[in-house]
Amino acid sequence: MKLYYTPGACSLAAHIILNEINVDFDLERVDLKTHTTEKGVDYYSINPKGYVPALEINPGLILTEIVAILPFLAQHDPKQDLIPPSGMGRAKVLEWLGYLNSELHDAYAVFFGPKLDEEQKQRAYQEIDRLLNYIEKYLASTDFDYLINDRFGPADAYLFVITNWSKLIKHDLEAFPNINLLRDKVAQRQSVQIAMRDEGLIK
């Protein structure tokens, strides 16, 4: 398999899960400004949508959209710990991935488009805080070690990656202690450390 990625983008979540399932894979970096890969390939010829991630499963067989890629990869976990194979457990994973993708990801994404004025920034921060507050209250109400249950999974990786963007947009996570506890657990995983080093995000 080959993952087309941009450092620190949501493709990092797929990179983490690839490390978790311990398979051989290649990485190819994408410059989202020029839409060219590090090998000089027009990225639109790989993913006509133009954004990352894209996962090449076999030559010519491409899967896009992080909410599709994460469950696809997680189901290849030989220990069957990352995602339940069916039933309510799997549905809960998809429910969280949907919320993170359609709500939280989009709320952060406004900072990566046209420049915002101060009033627009404050409204955008408030929206992020509103969405994070839902997650914070949920985590406070459960005894789970992670979002879905006591096992790390794709939703945890995705939440970790999205909330990493707070540093880029100067957004304070101090008001969310349970999210920060979860983030700390995820950050300590070997799969995360390796992925972040490989993408040049940490030394």
Rank of each mutant, 00 (worst) to 15 (best):
M1R: 04
K2P: 12
T6L: 04
P7K: 05
G8C: 04
G8T: 08
C10P: 06
L12N: 10
H15Y: 01
H15P: 14
N19G: 14
E20N: 08
I21W: 00
I21V: 11
V23K: 09
D26G: 12
D26P: 07
R29Y: 02
R29A: 06
V30I: 03
D31T: 02
T34E: 15
T36R: 07
T37G: 05
T37K: 01
K39F: 08
V41S: 06
Y43T: 13
Y44E: 10
K49G: 03
G50Q: 02
Y51G: 12
Y51A: 11
V52G: 04
V52L: 00
P53L: 06
P53Y: 06
P53S: 13
A54M: 07
E56I: 08
P59C: 10
L61E: 13
I62G: 07
L63I: 01
L63F: 06
E65H: 05
I66E: 12
I69D: 13
F72E: 00
F72T: 03
A74M: 08
H76G: 10
D81I: 07
G87D: 10
M88Q: 13
G89K: 13
A91L: 11
V93Y: 05
V93F: 01
V93L: 04
L94T: 01
E95F: 09
E95Y: 13
W96K: 15
G98H: 11
Y99W: 11
N101A: 13
E103A: 09
H105D: 09
H105Q: 15
D106R: 15
A107K: 15
Y108Q: 14
A109Q: 15
P114M: 11
K115I: 05
E118T: 06
E118M: 05
E119M: 08
K121V: 02
K121N: 10
Q122C: 09
Q122G: 09
R123D: 10
A124L: 01
A124Q: 12
Y125M: 10
Y125W: 10
Q126M: 11
I128Y: 02
R130V: 07
L131V: 02
N133M: 09
E136H: 11
D143F: 07
L147V: 05
N149W: 08
F152M: 12
P154C: 02
A155K: 15
A155N: 14
A155C: 04
D156G: 07
A157E: 09
V161M: 05
N164W: 02
W165F: 00
S166L: 00
L168M: 07
I169K: 12
I169E: 11
K170R: 12
P177H: 09
N180P: 07
L181N: 13
R183S: 13
Q188S: 14
Q188E: 15
R189H: 02
Q190W: 03
S191A: 12
V192E: 06
A195C: 05
R197Y: 08
L201S: 02
I202Q: 02
